[in-house]
């Protein structure tokens, strides 16, 4: 535990001193802001129109569901943005240790590869959670427009956190493959894109195939969370994905030592 914390603390500090991490944070918030603005403009138009329609026909204006019409699409957008930026957070984690020779320090210290792997994962997850927290500003603004339900927001964030965990575990794995950060970034990014593609491909296939593809894509498991439903299948999917990624990372780190990779 002490070793895990030592690794976690060092990585976190390193994030908060790293220009790359701030660029990632900045891009994340900015892109979320743009998405938010787009959704809100559309939402405003929509509610305006429905009000006018209601007046024209002398009816009660229809109940507008902020959760459904603004928050759910916002979360969907955040998921895509996270997918794009998380490799930027994870690329450094192992690649840099190898490049600067500090892996040799860690590997000859009385500390296990699990402690190293988990410490690094946790640091990226905490940094990512901080980024998510920053998007809370936008969600907060929605309370001005309407009366969104709190529960779907919280469960949605839980889903985003789990989803981010998947991207982080994957990025960590690719960082363990190489000592070149750019290679780690590009390969993680590429695999993430495949996941989006899988979900999207589902739209063009039959219902069974669509289900299978959707089940494989981490993005498709988010939907229920943002509806306020915490379904154990989705939670299990995410946790399996995360631990699978972490396990492969552990194996990679362990075996690169056996091979004597430099």
């Amino acid at each position: 535990m002490r070793n895990f914390l030592a690794i976690l603390e060092r990585e976190l500090k390193s994030y908060f001193f790293s220009p790359v991490a701030y660029v990632v944070l900045g891009f994340f918030v900015l892109a979320t802001g743009v998405a938010f603005y787009t959704i809100i403009s559309w939402f405003n138009n929509y509610s305006m129109q429905s009000m006018m329609m209601a007046q024209q026909y002398r009816q009660m204006p229809p109940a507008i569901n902020v959760n459904q019409l603004a928050i759910r699409p916002l979360f969907g957008n955040i998921a895509i943005i996270a997918l794009l930026v998380v490799p930027g957070l994870t690329m450094r984690l192992f690649a840099e240790e190898k490049r600067q020779g500090t892996m040799e320090l860690l590997a000859t210290s009385p500390i296990t590869n699990w402690q190293i792997t988990l410490g690094k994962f946790a640091s990226a997850l905490i940094y990512y959670a901080t980024m998510l927290l920053a998007t809370g500003v936008f969600v907060g603004l929605l309370f001005i427009y309407g009366n969104p339900e709190l529960l779907p927001i919280l469960s949605g964030y839980l889903g985003l956190l789990l989803l981010g965990g998947c991207f982080i575990a994957l990025g960590l794995l690719f960082s363990a493959f190489t000592e070149n950060q750019i290679v780690a970034l590009a390969s993680a990014f590429f695999v993430n894109l495949i996941f989006v593609f899988l979900g999207w491909l589902g739209n063009f296939t039959g219902p069974t195939m669509s289900k299978v593809l959707g089940a494989l894509s981490p993005l498709d498991h988010l939907e229920d969370f943002s509806k306020g439903v915490i379904d154990s299948t989705h939670v299990i999917f995410y946790l399996t994905f995360i631990f699978g990624g972490l396990f492969l990372t552990f194996v990679t780190v362990e075996s690169s030592r056996w091979r004597g990779a430099r």
């Binding site: 002490r2 070793n3 030592a6 390193s14 790293s18 600067q100 020779g101 892996m103 040799e104």
Partner: peptide, 28 residues
């Protein structure tokens, strides 16, 4: 065992003191 590899294993973004504290921690 204390080990100084051919390439000194330094976290170049840390201060000397913070680095040595970190190493002390992971060395137990």
């Amino acid at each position: 065992i204390g080990y100084l590899p051919e390439q000194p294993p330094l976290y170049t973004d840390m201060t000397v003191k913070a680095y040595l504290h970190f190493v002390a921690k992971i060395k137990g």
